[in-house]
């Protein structure tokens, strides 16, 4: 079942068209990978799905994005609720310079959940879901910036898990991590997809092949090809996809 339906989405930075008529459906509780060379619009596309592009001046969008059948660009759409439902993991781990505890319950506080008991339950549950609980349960008051890069990235995922999103957008979540940490995050993604729909932008084609069920190949703002990962990697229909995958380009 498609949870996200994108129809004829185009995005302009001023006069520059960064996304050209993107059509794409994302399946629920699957991992969808978006690959392509730098500057081809993958991250821009990802940021359309939780409307982070709203923060940039002079951005203009046409077409529609529906999440769970609701048009998220409709005037009356609840933007803050959207971002609660569609969480985002960033390229560089970005825990807030607060304690581990405050980081995890941040989203709860933002959405008005202030009950101590509920906060502590969610805290434990979300840290367990990213396998961080055992490592940090004795130092919840420590500053989150004292954790290692990989722990910080898992903390950022726990921070999202606490508000129970439906979709996780991951923008090159492993690019600042070493291979062992990357493997840990990938293992985590496997588990997380039981609960969440995950869309991951990655530079790393092996990563896309390893973790995803569906893959989309972006080039210069076009979605060149989209399909099941095995099909894209073994028998791409478009010669440009093949060139990229075989390393002749990009």
């Amino acid at each position: 079942m498609s949870i996200i339906e994108v129809n004829n989405l185009s995005l302009f930075y001023g006069n520059f068209q960064a996304l050209k008529n993107i059509n794409l459906n994302v399946e629920q509780q699957k991992i969808t990978a978006l690959i392509g060379p730098s500057g081809c619009g993958k991250s821009t596309f990802l940021r359309c799905l939780n409307r982070m592009n709203d923060l940039i001046d002079d951005v203009h969008i046409t077409g529609s994005v529906k999440i769970a059948s609701h048009d998220i660009y409709h005037n009356s759409f609840d933007l803050l609720g959207l971002r609660k439902k569609v969480g985002m993991v960033f390229q560089r781990p970005n825990p807030f310079p607060l304690s581990i505890y405050d980081n995890v319950v941040y989203g709860l506080r933002v959405h008005g959940i202030l009950d101590k008991k509920i906060m502590e339950e969610k805290l434990k549950w979300s840290l367990e879901s990213v396998h961080l609980w055992a490592e940090v349960k004795d130092k919840l008051d420590a500053n989150a910036l004292t954790l290692s890069g990989e722990q910080q990235q898992r903390l950022c995922i726990a921070r999202l898990a606490a508000v129970e999103p439906e979709v996780l957008l991951m923008d090159e979540p492993c690019s600042a991590l070493d291979p062992i940490s990357t493997a840990k995050i990938e293992d985590l993604m496997y588990e997380l997809k039981k609960q969440y729909t995950i869309i991951i932008v990655t530079h790393n084609m092996q990563q896309a092949a390893r973790v995803s069920e569906y893959t989309g190949y972006f080039l210069l703002g076009d979605l060149v090809e989209f399909g099941e990962t095995t099909q894209i990697f073994t028998s791409p229909k478009d010669s440009r996809t093949e060139d990229y995958l075989t390393g002749r380009f990009g």
């Binding site: 939780n50 982070m52 923060l55 803050l80 609720g81 959207l82 971002r83 609660k84 969480g87 985002m88 960033f90 560089r92 970005n94 825990p95 807030f96 310079p97 941040y106 989203g107 933002v110 959405h111 950022c156 921070r159 999202l160 508000v163």
Partner: peptide, 12 residues
């Protein structure tokens, strides 16, 4: 990145 992280969680 702090601002983005917070906004992306649905904070005003």
């Amino acid at each position: 990145s702090y601002r983005e992280g917070s906004i992306a969680l649905g904070a005003t």
